[in-house]
Nucleic acid binder design. Structure first.
Length: 843
DNA sequence: ATCATGCCCTAA
DNA sequence: TGAGTTAGGGCATGAT
């Protein structure tokens, strides 16, 4: 029985440690926001002696540690596995819980000791030591008398926390936008949208909206009061990390004195608790990072999320919104020229305010449409971390969360992050040469979760890797000669975790099917999200273990995984070729094999029913062949699956570039690698190429070539729509304190890059620039050897570019499309001239 | 003209 | 965004 009277189920948003407590912020299942002060977990590191033998003066050394001011207690732990064998460990309980405390301790004792469990934040220990995940139940004592902006402020200790089944927390979301003066950077007006998810991950139909006008101080104070009273868990907006948040900070510094804590908090005190240094509630940039930190809440930039998930050609809010919501007429209204904001604000403030409100709502609608928040929560649940770690942390943090807790329970010492040195990189996957041309009837097979399977099957882990070259223990030996102990000698941590994840995924897939049968949509969505999160996490293991810095890896681990992968795939190719089967293509974990057919079966199904049977029979044969191959080459857990049946496959002869007419399990055209897939290509090229591929896969090459020749003529005459010629590439640059951008810092010859020229034009016009953003432009002229470009600013409220370099665009089209038509005898120059000597087709 | 280099973006 | 990997295509520039 708990000594405390209150009990809550909650999702953990973020945590922080002080020397005596761990602080935790969460959102309860019942809707309240909660702050917990948790007692009883003391900060510690683990140590052992250097070398293999126990030093003779070990007790004297331990005594010296014990006498230190920063050490509270020293406990003997028994033996743990380390990279240099099993060694006795001691737990050093420390006074300080902060990074600097551990760092100092390590530095002052590095001559005598090796350190384990010594380089990550104390608050993570809460999850690791108590084996907690994102969703927990707590018994606590509520304190009504507090100053934090949360619904429940409570105290508890580590004995009153327990894991519960994952659920979707009813997170509160705030989305905001500022309109600012070009002339003096001041804030003209602002809007904030407040919304909340329900426990099935859906949002309210009608979110609340608030607008703010008046003096800058009134606007900032109004927003801050709203944030404090509505108490959101997630704060979003479009490009807030690079624009709105820094602007709020800049205006805060302009309007207040550094020491005036009270005013600063009144204007921008959005956090749920004060920072450590300076002790105020104002969000700040994390040390040595570009990320903004807000205690107890999470900033989520909708720009970054949309970019990662959609890979849009352009990245302005208006472009992304139209991409996601093409039906929405309201998005086309209210165009305000952002480069003339001061005039707009003066002449039609009401429209500007409406525009601001819309731009505050859209980021939240984007996050909602992409199901970002439920997705993050699922990933947090599967990796057993706080929401904050999933949003702001790194892939290795997720892996750490699972590996460290298992290591602790398996008496494996947790080493520190390794030093960064990537001088020689490991070999990767195998890619098969591809011949140019059309290949009818192709079965595509691929290995199911190839890298995870390899890790499981061969018991690959740092703890099972054999370094003793004379070892006679039973083991798995990789094609590049790395040995791993058999499972019956020692089970690796990584294979165990991966197997657990695999069965977790099966569980969620099953639950998903059940829910679908019952017509329970929210439940189906939930389990679908969970199984997807498990997939993402499983696929992250290889990358982290192939990295050079990860604490639980070794260079040989990454190289042996890929060596096995190359061996498996090339061995199958070898066997097939020995049987005179035609392997058309292969990349890393997939094989494309020609299906032997008796005669020339058309690759397109005839409209006439009596003639369609040939095609249908061929399709049957394709499916049978695919399944048969898959079964033949599946071994143990290395499962080869028949993934796709193609009626036709085409490549112009370059690796990682191909198209296929998929007819099984569903009908669609697949395109890989080609310009069509690239966000830095222009619409006219991608559209033409797509249409060409359609013709080619249907066996109608004549139409494909005809279309290209006609198009190139039109482009040469200057008849193309300039909007279809916009090229967009991401551009880096170091944004300096005074707002200017240094391109020399990131590029060796910035002025030789067309997208840098375009970025400079943007900046000149007073439009915002952030490093990594996509910059759109049109090539207008080629003088000498370099291009002249004009920025495309339509999505920023500017006018369209009127002319283009006809020579450049027709050449580029001819080049890209010529690579493809070359497979049928039409070269780039022939496409440009529209004629050729020896005609394949007459027109 | 040809080749090397720098850069972006994609496949897996 | 101070940390998942390698393989590969293609464009533009600038030196030879």
């Amino acid at each position: 029985m708990s000594e405390y009277s209150s009990q809550y189920d909650l999702a953990v948003i973020s945590t922080r440690s002080t020397d005596s407590n761990i602080e935790l912020w969460g959102r309860c299942k019942t809707g309240e926001s909660i702050f917990l002060q948790i007692e009883g977990l003391k900060p510690y590191v683990e140590v052992t002696y250097k070398g293999i033998e126990t030093p003779s003066d070990i007790y004297q050394r331990l005594e010296e540690l014990r006498k230190r001011d920063d050490v509270v207690e020293l406990l003997e732990l028994g033996d743990k596995w380390t990279e240099s064998g099993n060694k006795k460990m001691w737990k050093v309980i420390m006074k300080g819980s902060q990074h600097k405390d551990r760092k100092l301790f390590r530095e002052e004792n590095r001559d005598d000791w090796k350190f384990y469990n010594a380089d990550f934040n104390h608050e993570r220990r809460l999850f690791l030591d108590l084996d907690l995940g994102t969703h927990i139940s707590v018994n606590c004592e509520v304190n009504e008398d507090h100053k934090f902006p949360v619904d429940i402020y409570a105290k508890t200790d580590i004995n009153n926390l327990k894991n519960i089944e994952a659920f979707q927390a009813p997170f509160v979301i705030a989305s905001f936008d500022l309109e600012t003066s070009i002339a003096d950077n001041s804030i003209l007006c602002a809007a904030v949208i407040i919304d909340q998810l329900d426990t099935s991950g859906q949002r309210k139909k009608q979110p609340e909206d608030y607008t703010f006008i008046g003096t800058e101080k009134e606007i900032m104070k109004g927003m801050t009061d709203l944030i404090r009273s509505k108490d959101p868990d997630i704060i979003t907006g479009y490009n807030i990390d690079n624009f709105d948040i820094p602007r709020l900070e800049e205006r805060l510094n302009y309007l207040t004195r550094k020491e005036d804590k009270k005013s600063r908090e009144e204007l921008f005190g959005w956090s749920r608790a004060p920072n450590k240094i300076p002790s105020d509630m104002v969000p700040k940039k994390k040390f040595n990072s570009k990320k903004w930190e807000i205690i107890g809440r999470c900033f989520v930039d909708a720009w970054w999320q949309a970019r990662m998930m959609l890979r849009p050609k352009r990245e302005t809010l208006s472009y992304v919104s139209q991409l996601l919501f093409p039906e929405r007429e309201d998005l086309r209204k209210l165009e305000i020229d952002a480069s003339k904001m001061d005039e707009e604000w003066k002449n039609r403030p009401e429209e500007v305010l409406e525009y601001c409100k819309r731009d505050a709502l859209l980021p939240w609608e984007i996050l909602d449409e992409l199901k970002i928040i439920p997705g993050k929560e699922s990933l947090a649940a599967v990796s057993k971390t706080s929401l904050d770690i999933v949003i702001n942390g790194t892939t290795s943090n997720w892996i750490d969360s699972l590996v460290i807790r298992l290591a602790d329970r398996s008496n494996v010492a947790v080493p520190m992050t390794k030093r960064y040195d990537r001088s020689d990189q490991i070999a990767g996957g195998y890619v098969h040469e591809v011949e140019p041309g059309v290949f009818p009837w192709v079965a595509v097979l691929d290995f199911k979760s190839m890298y995870p399977s390899i890790m499981i099957n061969n018991n690959i882990c740092r703890t099972t890797m054999i370094e003793d070259i004379n070892s006679q223990l039973p083991c798995h030996e990789s094609p590049d000669g790395v040995k791993y102990l058999h499972k019956n000698q020692r089970e690796g941590l990584v294979p165990k975790l991966l197997m657990d994840l695999m069965s977790q995924r099966d569980f969620h897939k099953n639950e998903m099917k059940k829910a679908e049968k019952d017509g329970n949509k929210p439940k189906k969505r939930f389990h679908d999200g969970m199984q997807y999160a498990v997939k993402i996490l499983m696929n992250s293991f290889y990358g982290v273990f192939a990295s050079v810095f990860y604490r639980f890896t070794h260079k040989n681990i990454g190289s042996s995984i890929t060596a096995w992968a190359r061996y498996n795939i090339t061995e199958i190719i070898r066997q097939l070729e020995e049987e005179n089967q035609n392997v058309v293509y292969s990349d890393t974990d997939s094989i494309f094999v020609s299906v032997p057919m008796n005669n020339n079966v058309p690759t397109k199904r005839s409209e006439i029913e009596s003639e369609a049977k040939v095609f249908d029979d061929a399709k049957e044969e394709l499916i049978r062949f695919g399944h048969e191959l898959a079964e033949r080459f599946t071994e143990d857990a290395a499962e080869l699956e028949f993934e796709t049946g193609l009626s036709a496959f085409f490549s112009h002869g370059a690796k990682k570039r191909y198209v296929g007419r998929m007819i099984w399990p569903k009908e669609e055209m697949i395109i890989r690698g080609y310009e069509t897939r690239r966000s830095d290509s222009f619409t006219l090229l991608t559209n033409t190429m797509t249409s060409m591929f359609e013709y080619i896969l249907d066996g109608n090459q004549e139409s494909a070539i005809k279309e290209v020749i006609d198009l190139i003529k039109e482009v040469k005459r200057g008849h193309a729509d300039v909007e279809d010629l916009v090229i967009s590439r991401s551009c880096k640059g170091k944004v300096l304190k005074d707002g200017t951008v240094d391109f020399n810092d990131v590029y060796s010859n910035p002025d030789g890059l067309p997208f840098v020229k375009a970025a400079k034009e943007r900046i000149k016009l007073g439009l915002e620039f952030t490093s990594g953003m996509k910059v759109a432009y049109v090539v207008t002229k080629t003088s000498g050897s370099t291009q002249e470009v004009e920025p495309w600013l339509v999505e920023d409220g500017g006018e369209p570019v009127l002319n283009y370099d006809a020579d450049y665009y027709s050449k580029r089209l001819a080049k890209a499309l010529g690579r493809i038509t070359e497979a049928f005898g039409w070269s780039e120059s022939e496409l440009l001239s529209g004629t050729r000597q020896t005609t394949l087709f007459s027109f």
